[in-house]
Each structure stands twice: as structure tokens, then as C-alpha cells.
Design a protein around this nucleic acid. Structure first.
Lengths: 225, 225
DNA sequence: TTTACTATGATAGTATTACTATCTTTTTTA
DNA sequence: TAAAAAAGATAGTAATACTATCATAGTAAA
């Protein structure tokens, strides 16, 4: 039997917790698959319902709309990354080592073991890279923020910023550097694959290792004591 | 009489050049206004046509769809930034000075004089900050890239990367650093305004100056000889 | 064991979106 | 002055983004 972790996500993200039922877990699985395949703009609840051989209305019982579904997925990703960073830095004391591990997990998230059977992490990462930033680049950002829908991201950024603080408390731009590292990680991989003239990362098997190396170089050069 | 510059944009961005007619220029103006107001997702050709007291079909005579309109606006922004960088670095010889000027223009783009009467730059910048990245985070990125729809961005990044090359040719991540500076500039302002726990930039009158200072610190620390 | 509650299925319906087509009128240009 | 191009007006269609309702199957509480 497999060890399955259920990440706790903000209740305002969903109407009914999709992790709690077979239908919900299936919905997540097929949604990830379909968004990856046709892109978030073309993705509809009707289409995913067809894939699941069910009615559109059933999908609305879990998520208010597709924006909330995407937000759910990005939150899942943030919580999962946070969980992995916690787990893998627990027994480390050297701030440099902690930071290196965090960067490794941010840049090279694919390498890690799967947490659940119903979320395909490889495909989820693809979605996060291409669609992730759409979950907060929205007109109603301030209202959604009030509902706490971005808390997971904030806490994740502050966690890693804490490592920088341990390493060199005098560095002035802890949070900006960390949030930028998250954005950069996704963007540079996207550019390597689709707009290679915008990056020095080459699109090959080692792209994630190259990225990790570059981010480490950037971060440690900037925060040098 | 005002000096008006017409930026040359890729012909595949539009069906009919909106800069060439009164209707087109008005369409650009009202679209910028409306996207800023209601957000790109809620923006439709019908709504902007209503604002212009015209029919939806007329708008389709200029742009294939709203995605192409957004792409047009981001291209306009890239071309405009490129144009300003060219103009303001023309009489500079010191690579450091050139780079500083480029960063100033990227971070503090608002400060510069307007190029046209039909594009409200303050509002356009708002749109670029919130919606800009949606113009290339799309499923059909590779086909659009083949049509050259991102050439302006590539040339802009390579222009600034060229300054880094003049300053320190040994630095390994020229293009990644520059593309990251562009992304960072928009993101950090967005975070300052909406998700302040993700950044060290404070949301006040000086936010663009703070941003400029931070980016200069990042860039010159990284590319130090 | 009946009752009640919950989850899903099935169907229907509505306003809006994202277009395309066509025909007329006005404006520009040759 | 004719012809071409641009814009206006109207109509129509398939898909999207929902909401509502009613039936049914399973599960839990009285």
C-alpha cells in the first residue's frame, strides 16, 4: 500500500473538497491532463465532464469556475513544494545547505517522488510553468487575496526568505529575491522550450540542472556576506 | 503640433493596421482603457464596440481576436521600450552608463514622455504589468513564434544583453539575466501593489525608483568583473 | 427499519461569448 | 465620375459559462 499525503488547502478554493471523493480525485486528474493538452483558455468544464462521462453540472459542485480550479492546482503546487522543503531541510543546520536544498527543490521539482496517485506531478509542473501565473494575474486580485487564496505562496516565499535571513541577515531584498527565483524558475524553463533567444538555458535533458546551477549562482552571488 | 512616432509592428499581429486610421487609433485607446478597467478575461470585442458606438464586426476588421489585440499592445510596449533605449543610449559610450540607462527605462518607464496621443502610456503599463505575460503563456506559443510575433521581445532582450556583453563579456547568463529583469520589473511592482508579502518594494510614490535601485543592485552585483 | 440526508446523474434552460456572413452606405482614390 | 475600400447595420450560429430542477442511489442517524 502506498503512503498518500493529503495537503490541506484553503477551503475557499473549492465548493467541495476534491481530494475527499473518488469523483473529485478523478476530476483533478483529468483536469490536469486536459489543461496540459489544450491549454487553459480552451479548457472548459463541459470538456472535462465529457472525459469523465459525467455532466457539466457535477463539475460545478466541486469548483466555482475554471479559475478556481487553476488556483487550486497552483495552491497544491505551492503546498507541495513547501512540504518538500520542510521535509528535506528538517535535519539540516547549515543555512547554506538549507538554501541549496530549497533551490534544488524549486528548480528541479520533477526529481522528487510523487505524493499522490491522482496528481500527475510531471504534467502539473507543465501546467504551473505555462499557466501558473494566470492564477494571480487577475482583475479581482485584491478580493481573492482577502480570502487568503495566496497565503500558501506567501508562506512559501517567507520560508525560503527565512533561510536567506539565517545565511546573511543584512541582505536587503530577501523576499523579492525569493519570489523572483520562483518566477524565474518557471519562466526560464518556458523560454528554453519555446523562446530560446530569451534565455541561456538550453532545452535538453539537463535543463533543470542548468537552471538549478544558474539560480544558485545568482542567489549566492547576491547574498554574499 | 505634436511629434507623433508610428512604431512599426509585425503585420501578422493585425488584420488591418490600427495605427493607420482614426477608427483604429480609437479602438486602441478604448481597448487599453477597457482592459485596464475590467481585466483581460472579461474584456470582449462587443463591449469595446459599444464604447465606440460601433458594431462588433468592425473590431474584427482590425484584430483576429482579443489575444491578438493583447499581443499587439505588448509588442507596442516592447518596440517603444526598445526605441527609448536606442534614443537614450545613442550618445553614451560607457557600457555601464548604457546599462544603467536601459535599467532606468525598463523599471521607470512611466517617467518618459508620451509617443502618441492615442496610446495612454500610464494605462498601458498597468496592462503590461497585469496582463502582459498572458500574451506568450499560451498553448499555441510555437506556431505564433514561427510567425515572428515575439521578435520584438527577443531583439529587445538581445539589445540589453549586448550592453552586458560590452561591460563584462565573461558573464555567462546574459540573456537570462535580461529577460529576468523584464519579468521581475513587472512582477515586483504587481506584488508591491497586490501581494506585498512577496516583495521588499513598498507600494508608494517611489515604488518605481525603489525597483530601479534594486534591479541595478542585482544586475551590477551579478555581472561584476 | 424507516427516515433523512448526501452525492451524483440527467435534463433543460439562459445570457453571453466568439465569431462569420451579408448587405448597405459612406468615404477615398484613380 | 467610377470604382474600390472602409465602415455601419443586422442577423445568425456554435460554444461558453453558468443555474435550476428533479430523479435516484447509497449512507447514516433515529
Amino acid at each position: 500500500m502506498r503512503f498518500e499525503v493529503e495537503l490541506q488547502l484553503n477551503e475557499k478554493l473549492f465548493v467541495k473538497n476534491p481530494q475527499a471523493t473518488d469523483f473529485g480525485r478523478n476530476l483533478l486528474k483529468q483536469s490536469i491532463c486536459l489543461i496540459d493538452e489544450i491549454g487553459f483558455e480552451k479548457f472548459t468544464f463541459r470538456k472535462v465532464a465529457q472525459k469523465l462521462n459525467t455532466a457539466e453540472a457535477s463539475v460545478y459542485r466541486y469548483f466555482e469556475n475554471k479559475h478556481h480550479l487553476l488556483l487550486y492546482l497552483t495552491n497544491w503546487y505551492w503546498e507541495w513544494t513547501h512540504y518538500m522543503i520542510d521535509r528535506k531541510t528538517l535535519n539540516l543546520t547549515d543555512p547554506k545547505k538549507k538554501l541549496e536544498m530549497a533551490i534544488h527543490l524549486i528548480a528541479n521539482s520533477l526529481q522528487e517522488e510523487a505524493l499522490t496517485s491522482y496528481i500527475d506531478q510531471k504534467t502539473l509542473i507543465n501546467i504551473i510553468i505555462r499557466e501558473g501565473s494566470k492564477s494571480y494575474h487577475i482583475h479581482d486580485i485584491d478580493e481573492e487575496n482577502k480570502d487568503g487564496l495566496f497565503l500558501s505562496y506567501k508562506e512559501l516565499v517567507e520560508k525560503v526568505a527565512g533561510f536567506i535571513n539565517e545565511y546573511n541577515p543584512k541582505f536587503k531584498y530577501k523576499k523579492s529575491l525569493v519570489s523572483n527565483v520562483f518566477e524565474m524558475a518557471n519562466n526560464q524553463i518556458y523560454f528554453a522550450e519555446h523562446l530560446p533567444r530569451l534565455t541561456d538555458i538550453k532545452d535538453n535533458k539537463d535543463e533543470f540542472d542548468e537552471l538549478e546551477k544558474m539560480i544558485k549562482y545568482f542567489v549566492f552571488t547576491l547574498i554574499k556576506k
